[in-house]
Simulated scan of single mutants.
Amino acid sequence: MSRTFGKYNVNDIHSLADTPKDEQESKDYANALAQGNYPAGLDGCFTVGISGGCGPDCWVYQNGECGEPNEMIDRLTSDELEEHYQLYPRKVGSTDES
């Protein structure tokens, strides 16, 4: 019996290589992975990361939910860098410049 969650079919390994583009696709992907060897409850960052989609175009990053946003800084243009600091403001008094 084939189990499908959104566009992700647990019997089709090639469909699992697609990067989730939004929260719903991420949930669909996590559900498909949970039918295999991955635990239930995977977050968006994990589903994007495991499929190789980390970067400034990641929906988790763009929603201001990235746990490691400073990893994007070296990939950003000056305009994108301004947007980055709007999404992820520096903490007042922080000495962390990374």
Results as ranks from 00 to 15, higher is better:
48 V>M: 04
78 S>A: 11
92 V>P: 00
66 C>K: 01
56 P>T: 07
54 C>E: 13
64 G>Q: 10
50 I>R: 09
57 D>V: 06
67 G>P: 01
69 P>W: 00
90 R>E: 13
60 V>G: 02
78 S>F: 11
69 P>L: 00
52 G>Q: 01
79 D>K: 15
91 K>Y: 04
76 L>E: 02
80 E>P: 02
94 S>M: 01
81 L>S: 01
68 E>K: 11
47 T>A: 08
93 G>K: 05
89 P>T: 14
58 C>E: 11
92 V>F: 06
63 N>L: 05
68 E>A: 11
64 G>T: 11
67 G>I: 15
48 V>T: 00
92 V>K: 14
75 R>S: 13
72 M>A: 09
50 I>T: 10
84 H>A: 00
61 Y>S: 01
63 N>P: 01
44 G>K: 12
52 G>I: 05
60 V>K: 02
51 S>E: 02
85 Y>H: 12
64 G>R: 07
54 C>Y: 05
44 G>W: 09
47 T>S: 06
71 E>S: 05
92 V>R: 08
89 P>I: 08
91 K>E: 15
62 Q>S: 12
54 C>K: 04
93 G>V: 06
45 C>M: 13
72 M>L: 09
94 S>K: 05
65 E>D: 14
44 G>A: 15
90 R>S: 14
82 E>H: 07
79 D>V: 08
68 E>V: 12
75 R>K: 14
85 Y>E: 13
79 D>G: 09
70 N>H: 13
77 T>A: 08
45 C>R: 11
49 G>W: 00
81 L>I: 05
84 H>D: 00
79 D>W: 05
87 L>E: 04
51 S>T: 11
68 E>F: 12
52 G>T: 04
62 Q>H: 06
77 T>W: 05
63 N>E: 11
73 I>R: 15
77 T>R: 14
63 N>S: 14
73 I>T: 02
87 L>H: 01
68 E>Y: 15
74 D>K: 15
45 C>D: 12
86 Q>P: 00
86 Q>T: 06
46 F>S: 13
78 S>N: 14
77 T>F: 02
50 I>S: 10
78 S>R: 09
82 E>D: 14
52 G>F: 03
65 E>N: 08
57 D>P: 03
57 D>Q: 09
72 M>N: 07
86 Q>R: 12
61 Y>G: 03
58 C>K: 01
60 V>W: 02
83 E>R: 07
53 G>E: 13
44 G>I: 13
72 M>H: 08
82 E>V: 08
68 E>S: 13
77 T>M: 08
59 W>T: 03
72 M>I: 06
49 G>M: 08
80 E>Q: 14
